[in-house]
């Protein structure tokens, strides 16, 4: 009886419990637990606690949840695996510790995933972000064939070589939870243990934002807004205000993502817009490093 109950309990590690456990675990490893950045971003990497803090020589350890927006991935809440808004759990440690693989595998244990019972693989995945001027080498971690984490040693950020090198661990929380709770549909995930499901929280939002991203976003205005944000960012870098400048850059990046999902950006234009954002990031990275000395 006891063992059966135990098993039952294990399969009910809720979405929020998963977050709590990871926060507790990484907090014990000396990471400061931050809150999500309060702007729309495409991934946890965009949080200044990762982009900017991975630059320069000062040690840094942090972990946080970051809501991430990928407008083109929206499916009006109809697809069991795709969302235009989802959560990443992000860990960034500089310099990368020697035992980081062990730390990572133990973090999975804290979620009930014991490495000896599963097929855990480190599959080559070199990461590159043209908008951030960033690149790294690492893996996607597969658990029984499912990608649950990205594991990256940053080599370059904002066009600047990283030294010391940071390691970034990014858990896709929905995927991870679907694995833990054995669910086929993301909307069926238990958010808590009191019966609230993922769909109760996010289904309407997926539907409405998909409509906005694909159909109703005013592209004429967004093109103008992009230009305005870019001007603002440039002005702020001249004033050596790296963080506010970076905010403008993040906003511009999100505007670009919406334009992209509206299908109004051609291949050639795409490269041009990405280059414009990268130029901003590079300038910001430079003044941020200068401000660190």
């Amino acid at each position: 009886m006891v063992s059966k109950n135990k098993k039952l309990k294990k399969s009910f590690l809720s979405f929020q419990d998963t977050i709590f456990n990871l926060q507790k675990y990484w907090s014990k490893q000396g990471c400061i637990i931050l809150q999500p950045y309060d702007l729309e971003v495409g991934a946890g990497t965009f949080h200044p606690a990762t982009t900017l803090r991975s630059l320069g020589i000062k040690p840094w350890r942090t972990a946080y949840v970051q809501p991430s927006r990928r407008p083109t991935d929206g499916r009006y809440g109809d697809n069991p695996n795709r969302l235009q808004h989802y959560y990443q759990f992000q860990v960034l440690i500089k310099p990368s510790p020697n035992n980081i693989k062990k730390l990572f595998l133990n973090s999975l244990s804290s979620l009930g995933i014991k490495h000896e019972e599963h097929d855990i693989r480190f599959v080559e995945d070199d990461w590159e972000s043209p908008t951030l001027g960033a690149a790294g080498l690492g893996w996607e971690v597969w658990c029984d064939g499912m990608e649950i984490t990205q594991f990256t040693y940053f080599q370059q950020m904002a066009g600047i070589e990283c030294h010391p090198v940071s390691v970034e661990i990014t858990y896709g929380l929905e995927r991870l939870c679907m694995f833990i709770q054995n669910k086929k549909n993301v909307f069926d995930l238990s958010w808590n243990n009191q019966g609230i499901l993922y769909k109760d929280v996010f289904h309407q939002s997926e539907k409405e934002f998909s409509a906005y991203n694909f159909e109703y976003a005013n592209t004429d205005n967004l093109f103008k807004i992009f230009d305005m944000l870019e001007d603002e960012a440039k002005l702020l870098t001249e004033k050596k205000l790296s963080l506010p400048a970076y905010d403008q850059c993040l906003k511009a990046s999100h505007v670009f993502n919406i334009l992209d999902s509206r299908g109004v950006i051609s291949v050639a234009q795409r490269a041009e817009y990405i280059a414009r954002i990268r130029e901003l990031t590079k300038m910001i990275g430079k003044i941020w490093i200068e401000s660190q000395i």
């Binding site: 069991p80 019972e117 599963h118 097929d119 029984d144 064939g145 499912m146 679907m178």
Partner: peptide, 15 residues
């Protein structure tokens, strides 16, 4: 050991 690997891979392909 516990059949998790088979189950997991089947779930991935299904998704």
């Amino acid at each position: 050991l516990k059949g998790y690997i088979k189950l997991g891979n089947e779930r991935v392909i299904e998704a």
